[in-house]
Every structure is written in C-alpha cells, then in structure tokens.
C-alpha cells in the first residue's frame, strides 16, 4: 500500500500519520506531483484558514492536480471543504469537486463547533462496520451544505454534510484520526476501498 498524505504546509498531519501507524500502515508525506499521482491512496488534510490553504495548494500546483486524480482520495476537515465549489471563509473559490458550498455557522451557535457529534444517514463503504449515530470529533466554524453527494449527515443548529463522495473523491468534516476506535475503523475502511 503506497499511501501519501499531501503535505502542503497546512495542518496537523503528524496526527494522521500516527493514526495510520497504529493501523500498521506507513504513510508518506509529500507535495511532489510525480509521487502523488503514483500513490494507491491519498489523504488530503487541512486545518486553518481556507484562502491561505488554497494559496498553498496553488503555490505547489496541487489545485490543478487534485481534481484530476483517479485513485481514492480522502479530504479531511478543511481538505474536504476545499474540495467543494466555494467557501465563505476568505471568499475562497474551491477545487469544484463536490457540488456544494461551504458556509459559516450562524451567529446563534457557539462557534467553532468543538467536540463529538453524531453522524447518520451513512451511505458509503467508508462507513463499513460503523453504526448510525456513531460519534466523531470535529472542530470547525464552517460547514458544507447538505446535497445529494452527502454520505453522512450531522446536526449542529441544522443538518449539514459531514461526509461527501463523488466517484473516487471522499471528504469528511470530522477528524477520524482523533475519533477513537470509530475513527480508526473509518481510516481502515478507506485503505480497504
């Protein structure tokens, strides 16, 4: 298994690398296009601010590469948000993979949403052996609007897409690498896709 975590200078990638190590899988960090295209599976992480992260993708020409990848790729947190059409955070144009938009949580809610929330309407092999209403850990101020590409929903003030899928592209808003045994199961499922 040649697993690559895209390392474009954004986010806590060590935690993701450690999570795979606990599953017995060595994940390699890279931002080199020729390495990424040859990977069997790819993780697209991200923590921080959307417009800055997008700039970092552009600097490394990854904004052109990612939408054309053919192997399974999993966006996590901001990675997933960048795979959408656009984000209200920093008025950022996304990679346009998922046909939904990223909006800010309304002011009546405590923002960021920090903590464990349930996922439901699970509809993908990514959730094999994960039960409906399982808890996943999330930290975010922006969310992807629900659409027909949603493979999981979560409710915080209203329903949003907590996971998305289109063809070989997968995205999760929560952090599987920080979500205990359930999160580890999801990463295992991704490897076994």
């Amino acid at each position: 298994m040649n697993l690559i975590i895209i390392d474009y200078g954004v986010g806590n990638i060590k935690s993701i690398q450690f999570a795979f190590k606990r599953l017995g899988i060595e994940a390699k960090l890279s931002k080199e296009i020729n390495e990424i295209v040859q990977a069997d599976k790819i993780i697209f992480p991200g923590v921080g601010e959307a417009s800055f992260a997008m700039q970092m993708l552009q600097t490394n020409n990854l904004d052109q590469l990612i939408p054309n990848l053919k192997q399974p790729i999993l966006g996590i947190c901001l990675g997933m948000q960048l795979m959408c059409q656009s984000s209200e955070e920093g008025n950022t144009k996304g990679l346009g993979i998922f046909h939904t938009e990223v909006k800010q949580f309304s002011s009546g809610l405590k923002v960021p949403q920090i903590g464990w929330n349930t996922i439901y309407n699970l509809n993908s092999k990514l959730f094999s052996n994960i039960s409906d209403q399982a808890y996943m850990y999330s930290v975010h101020s922006f969310y992807a609007e629900n659409n027909k590409e949603a493979i999981a929903n979560t409710n915080y003030g209203h329903v949003y897409a907590s996971a998305l899928q289109k063809d070989n592209f997968y995205g999760v808003q929560f952090h599987p690498e920080k979500s205990g045994a359930v999160g580890a199961q999801l990463l295992k499922n991704f490897i076994e896709l």
């Binding site: 060590k14 450690f18 999570a19 606990r22 850990y137 930290v139 920080k178 979500s179 999160g183 580890a184």
Partner: peptide, 10 residues
C-alpha cells in the same frame, strides 16, 4: 510527540 503517537483522542 509520544502522546500523539499513542492517543487517538484530542
């Protein structure tokens, strides 16, 4: 570093 390696919660 050691905690991050072994602990799967935040």
């Amino acid at each position: 570093l050691k905690i991050a390696e072994h602990i799967n919660i935040p």
